[in-house]
Design a protein around this nucleic acid. Sequence first.
DNA 1: GCCAACGTTGGC
DNA 2: GCCAACGTTGGC
Length: 150
Amino acid sequence: MPKHLKPARNYWLVKSEPDVYSFADLLRDKQTFWDGVRNYQARNNLLAMRCGDAVLCYHSNIDKAVMGIAEVVRTAYPDPTVEPEEAKGNWVCVDICAVQALTPVTLAMIKAEPRLANIALIKQSRLSVLPLTPEEYTLLCALGGVKNAR
DNA sequence: GCCAACGTTGGC
DNA sequence: GCCAACGTTGGC
């Protein structure tokens, strides 16, 4: 396909607590549904995901590091874990599949990297689904030992 | 365990 | 519509 016709690809970062669901779990499962988001801004980011978008998986709390690369394989659909009293939020989930693990890129490494000074992970530290620029994505992959990440 | 950041709720 | 109180997240 000619380069100028290549569909736009977006880049995202999602957080999880590793003792709840880790990137190792995703590698084992191959694919999962990314559920449980109950924040409107994070939900809107889920709604903006397209098949083929790249997703970096970050572990909060214990590891505080980007652990691996995943890819969106199904766009937003109703989150099956929504409780009746949460229904008005129109909460959604997406399906992602594992692509490959990274050498963990720690939060300390990210904070030490001037080119990542404006990353949403730091600017909006409580948001669990956030956008990345292509440059941030490529750099995080490189820091994790993956050059020329797709 | 503490606290900063920040989203949500509810009284007015 | 404002804002105080409260709850949650996540880093330290």
